[in-house]
């Protein structure tokens, strides 16, 4: 086995990197692959809570790097899925505790055993971001259809190219079809025209994301949620499958069309 190493980054904070990492990990593992995800956000760890694994942490990434434990000891297995593991970030340290070459060494140790290694990058363009992209084969840039997130995504895409890790692939998260329809939100086409990179997914704004995060059960485990479906499709595209893009406009969704036909006057 030779893993594909995917780093999820963004530039701007809070656009959905951790949510994307957790859901891609779950969707890939659900598809029968062996997956490990690494929380690269040292000092602000979150991937553990989003995955619902916060109570099982003993060792973290910095413990591994500083030799207090073996890599295997820091890997928490997610019992809901056959082969999903998390390496948590340290919470009481900062980004300078790890270097890009530490990350490359650590990831090289894992490559032989996994199909996918996902790395959740912190926001910004500093050390934490450099650490996260150093071992990457593929960089996924997450953005929202909104001016500052797109601008920062453009910076990151440029830096990823400069580091010879490009071309990055784009996830547009929190798309609101109603606002797009009113002309008050850029659609995927607008964002793509500006950023000019390959799109690998559009994820709708979905309350289920918040609910599932509250519960520590990533939304990709819920086959009925729209966001869960979108993340599952991104996972399939990462595996090289050709998957058509979801129609985010709920009104033209086949399911809601059918349910409206069955419930005349409803909706």
């Amino acid at each position: 086995m030779a893993a594909t190493v995917v780093t999820i980054s963004s530039g701007k904070g809070g656009v959905g990197k951790t949510t994307t990492t957790a859901n891609l990990a779950v969707a890939l593992a659900n598809g029968g692959l062996k997956v490990v995800c690494i929380d690269g956000d040292i000092g602000l760890r979150n991937l553990d809570v989003v995955l619902g694994l916060e109570n099982r942490i003993v060792y973290d990434l910095v413990d591994v790097v500083e030799g207090r434990c073996r890599l295997r000891q820091a890997m928490i297995r997610d019992k809901r899925l056959p082969e999903l593991y998390l390496i948590p970030a340290a919470q009481t340290r900062d980004k300078s505790a790890v270097t890009p070459s530490d990350m490359v060494r650590l990831v090289d140790e894992l490559r032989g055993e996994f199909d996918f290694i996902l790395i959740d990058s912190p926001a910004g363009i500093e050390r934490g971001f450099r650490n996260a992209i150093a071992p990457a084969d593929v960089v996924v840039v997450v953005t929202n259809p909104e001016v500052s997130a797109v601008r920062d995504a453009d910076r990151i895409i440029g830096l990823v190219e400069a580091e010879e890790k490009g071309p990055a692939r784009l996830v547009i998260n929190r798309m609101n079809p109603g606002m797009v329809k009113r002309g008050d939100m850029m659609d995927a086409e607008d964002v793509l025209e500006l950023l000019a990179i390959e799109l690998i997914g559009v994820v709708p704004e979905d309350e289920n994301v918040v609910v599932s995060t509250n519960r520590g059960q990533p939304v990709a485990l819920d086959p009925k949620s729209r966001a869960g479906k979108a993340f599952t499709n991104i996972a399939r595209r990462l595996r090289g499958e050709q998957v058509p893009f979801l129609d985010l406009d709920e009104k033209s969704d086949l399911f809601s069309k059918l349910s409206r036909m069955l419930r005349p006057g409803g909706d």
Binding site: E146, G183, D184
Partner: peptide
């Protein structure tokens, strides 16, 4: 519509 303004400004 503000989406167009966003796009033109971002360009």
């Amino acid at each position: 519509a503000s989406a167009n303004q966003a796009k033109e400004r971002l360009k």
